[in-house]
């Protein structure tokens, strides 16, 4: 089976190289793209742009997680909060939130704050429902035990509820990582904040095939690396509770 997978990739690369020999202006080719990526590394400061983008993404994602987890905890723990907030949260969950980015430009300008706000708006909602489900489940399972041992207040929150909900939160992080990355790239693309997004806007203006493919592949590598990392974290955190899915 493994051979077929490798063969598929090899055949694809060969076909691409062949297409590139015929019309490099449209298809580029694997060798040209690798050369271009090396050039972006040495001359274009690719590494700095990628790290800056990922750092911004992680920071915004952390904010999104704090806000999303807090909201999810509120609606999972308190019926009143769930009554009041849940209709709006359900609505926000199913709409294309990326559309509000122009409004965020008006509110937050075009700097780092704007990028963080974009990530929070795009991904915060994805943490809410997993956290709420985790909170409800933990309360259901451990509430009586905790009461019997007189564990309450802050202790219950940090020693019971949070660890209990953690695998659910990790799942929420896993399903939101792609969105967080897209949000930061869209933000940079829209306002010209240096990063992966500006690589995209440069490539769109110049329409140089090598650059276009190189940038897309770099984005792919970043996306794949982040997904792998978060998947690993999710598995580690959920190791003692394998039944949690989405």
């Amino acid at each position: 089976m493994k051979y077929i997978k490798v063969a598929g990739v090899v055949v694809f690369l060969l076909l691409w190289q062949l297409a590139g020999q015929i019309n490099p202006g449209i298809y580029s080719s694997p060798t040209l793209v690798v050369t271009e990526i090396v050039r972006l590394f040495t001359e274009g400061g690719l590494l700095g742009l990628v790290f800056g983008t990922v750092a911004t993404m992680l920071l915004g994602w952390a904010f999104a997680a704090v806000i999303g987890v807090f909201t999810g905890f509120l609606i999972g723990r308190y019926r009143l909060a769930s009554l009041v907030l849940e209709p709006y949260l359900v609505a926000l969950y199913s709409v294309p939130l990326i559309a509000v980015v122009p409004l965020l430009v008006i509110w937050f300008g075009i700097g780092q704050t704007f990028l963080l706000a974009t990530i929070v708006v795009a991904t915060g909602i994805m943490l809410v429902f997993p956290t709420a489900a985790g909170t409800r489940e933990t309360v259901r399972v451990y509430d009586q035990v905790a009461r019997a041992y007189c564990v309450s207040g802050r202790h219950f929150l940090f020693k019971v509820l949070l660890p209990g909900a953690l695998p659910f939160i990790a799942t929420g992080m896993r399903i939101s990582v792609q969105r967080a990355l897209m949000a930061v790239i869209v933000g940079q693309f829209l306002v010209g904040h240096p990063g992966l997004g500006t690589l995209l806007s440069d490539a769109r203006v110049r329409l140089d095939a090598d650059e276009v493919f190189a940038v897309a592949l770099v984005a792919l590598a970043v996306g794949a690396a982040l997904t792998a990392l978060v998947g690993w974290a999710d598995r580690t955190l959920s190791a003692w509770r394998p039944e949690v899915t989405s």
């Binding site: 598929g8 792609q178 992966l196 995209l200 792919l220 794949a224």
Partner: peptide
């Protein structure tokens, strides 16, 4: 499935917005 899925999986992991320049080119 074995032959094609690795490639499609890879594109699935890419933030699709990164295809905008390629789409503009083509």
């Amino acid at each position: 499935d074995d032959a094609i899925s690795p490639l499609l999986n890879a594109v699935f992991l890419m933030p699709r917005i990164a295809l905008v320049p390629l789409i503009a080119l083509w």
